[in-house]
């Protein structure tokens, strides 16, 4: 590198390119550093108890095993963990077949012009801000669920334990799952559509030559090797669902300390709990609330990362939060 300016530029851009790495390292360090007092204090109980209570932060703190914590406080995330997993899984179970059928149908039965339009429309879903899903959920979905859908489900599916029992205000597991399902549909459809495009032409020609129907072609496409991409798409969808905050916060019912009894019950998720508990945590002079929430954040981060990174690795696409660009990247 003979030119001085070039050399300076090289080092400058090199330093800048370290920033993303630096940010991730800082992110983990801060979360971990703030988690340590909670990890020490709560131990395994953090994951096995579903009782979360910030404590009487206005009373003098109490000393438990040499650690100062607010009087009466308890930090167990089992309810949140359960809520995060159950809502995400239900969302995935609904979104999975829909995204597969839609992307196959779009590729096999719809002409090129409409196909582009449909895919862009579905991708528009991903661009709608979370809070607007929440807004719609509160105003329309919750009444719809509690007045019509949930009673009907109770009546016809009530023979199964998870679908029987009380119906609440509409906010809860079902509402959260439906909203999450809508939010992960675009990313999944986009990825599956991309992988179908990647090799449908050769299959199409071959299959049509053999006199196959389009439905048979669809099965062939799936059997021939986008299985793994579909799995990747599901993981990416799951990753998004696990970490989604605002929409779920708004339609989950934000319950504490009561484990849900059925699919209609109010629930709380890790992300939603983190969002709703943080401001009261600042009142805690011992800091333990903040430490516990940091541990909650760290746990959420690790779970989400596992799903997303597996998905990314499999799909190998640069899918970006908020807007999927499966066709381009």
């Amino acid at each position: 590198m003979p030119h001085k300016l070039d050399k300076i530029f090289y080092f400058l851009t090199f330093l800048i390119s370290i920033i993303p790495i630096f940010l991730v390292v800082m992110l983990f360090s801060f979360l971990l550093y703030y988690s340590i007092p909670s990890i020490k204090y709560n131990g395994l109980k953090f994951f096995t108890s579903y009782y979360w209570y910030p404590g009487q932060v206005y009373l003098p703190p109490v000393n438990i095993n040499g650690i100062l914590v607010p009087y009466g406080s308890s930090f167990g995330i089992l309810l949140f963990l359960y809520g995060t997993l159950i809502t995400s899984l239900i969302a995935l179970i609904i979104a999975f077949p829909i995204s597969i059928v839609v992307s196959l149908a779009v590729n096999l039965y719809v002409n090129e012009k409409f196909k582009k339009l449909i895919i862009s429309l579905i991708e528009l879903f991903a661009a709608i801000p979370s809070v607007l899903y929440g807004l719609w959920g509160i105003v329309y979905l919750e009444p719809l669920l509690s007045n019509f859908i949930e009673p009907a489900m109770n009546k016809y599916l009530g023979f199964m334990p998870f679908f029987s029992g009380n119906i609440y205000s509409g906010a809860g597991i079902l509402a959260s799952s439906i909203i999450l399902c809508l939010m992960i549909l675009p990313i999944m459809t986009s990825v599956i559509n991309g992988s179908i495009l990647n090799f449908s032409t050769s299959i199409k020609e071959g299959a049509i030559a053999l006199g196959a129907t389009r439905y048979e072609m669809a099965r062939l496409i799936i059997l021939r090797g986008i299985k793994i991409q579909i799995f990747g798409a599901a993981m990416l969808g799951l990753g998004r669902a696990l970490g989604e905050t605002m929409a779920v916060l708004m339609v989950s019912g934000s319950v504490f300390n009561i484990m849900p009894s059925n699919i209609y019950s109010p629930i709380n998720t890790m992300a939603a709990a983190l969002a709703s508990l943080l401001d009261s945590a600042f009142m805690d002079s011992t800091g333990m609330n903040l430490y516990a929430l940091s541990e909650l954040g760290l746990t959420l981060m690790l779970i989400t990362l596992a799903a997303s990174l597996i998905g990314r690795f499999i799909v190998g696409l640069g899918i970006i939060r908020g807007f999927t660009r499966g066709e381009e990247i």
Binding site: L31, G243, L278, L300, M301, R321
Partner: peptide, 20 residues
């Protein structure tokens, strides 16, 4: 590392923003 950033839930980024 950028993939990790992309996959981080927004509320966790918020918590990091708060702490840092």
């Amino acid at each position: 590392f950028t993939d990790v950033l992309t996959s981080t839930p927004s509320i966790v980024l918020g918590l990091f923003g708060y702490l840092f």
